[in-house]
Design a protein around this nucleic acid. Structure first.
Lengths: 129, 129
DNA sequence: ATTTTATGTCATATTTTATAACACGAAAAT
DNA sequence: ATTTTCGTGTTATAAAATATGACATAAAAT
């Protein structure tokens, strides 16, 4: 599902479209950006270009606001989220090295298996042992 | 998967974005429209707004063109496609009425079952028959 | 009672898009 | 061998969309 993620993160929507999709005013969208919440990419002409993920985030912000949470609160939430993602990232990193360890172990086993094979070939002598 | 279809058919992309996504010039995109191939919606300000489906179709057209097929050919292909869709539509229609028929049959069976029930209730007399 | 927040509104500059026209090489038709 | 048609580029002009910054303000926080 990597392709889907890519699609959702492509900055292809002008602010006008985002306004309609979120039912937010340009003023609001720009203000949230100013507050460090949703920072869109810019095209060559300095126009803001949003992704579907950006839109989702804006809708999320709408929800938070309607729950009475203010900018600072929302900012905090996203910082927390980033932290969690960071932690997960580290976790991933760790588990990756774990699989590395497993791979190495497997290779060691394989090596041992090789020895076993040789032992098999020598097994004609087994009975003798 | 109705929601996905909706997403893909939402007219949210300005022509500039479509140009980048398809690597076609505005001239080309508009010409294909003029030729009846990809007709985008328009926003209140008469700007063309494209959907992801539109983009896919444009990419398809690019392929056809690179295969040497001309506008007329592509138009023909799409007309065929429409016909097929239409046929499928009719088929759907048909099979829907089929299920209707089945439903009706089921109801008839149920009705018969009702009679059967009554027959059961009368079955105390069965032996008499 | 002030100050801060979140948003509206307005003005100005820049960018993007629409439309129409002219051009032009390559392919097709005559 | 010409003439037409096709697909696209380019240019000019007008309208729409967007960016930025300033001023305004009701509601909330202090």
């Amino acid at each position: 599902m990597k392709e889907k993620e890519l699609r959702r993160s492509l900055s292809v929507l002008p602010i006008g479209t985002v306004m309609k999709l979120t039912d937010l005013s340009a003023r609001q969208i720009r203000y949230y950006e100013q507050q460090g919440l949703v920072i869109p990419e810019r095209n060559e002409g300095n126009r803001r270009m949003y992704s579907l993920n950006n839109v989702d985030q804006l809708l999320e912000i709408k929800d938070y606001l309607s729950e009475g949470i203010n900018m600072a609160g929302i900012r905090h939430i996203y910082e927390q989220q980033k932290e969690r993602e960071h932690a997960k990232q580290e976790q991933m990193q760790k588990s990756l090295t774990d699989t590395d360890v497993r791979r190495i172990l497997r290779e060691e086993i394989k090596a041992v298996g090789g020895l076993a094979d040789r032992a098999d070939k020598l097994s004609v002598h087994k009975k003798k042992l």
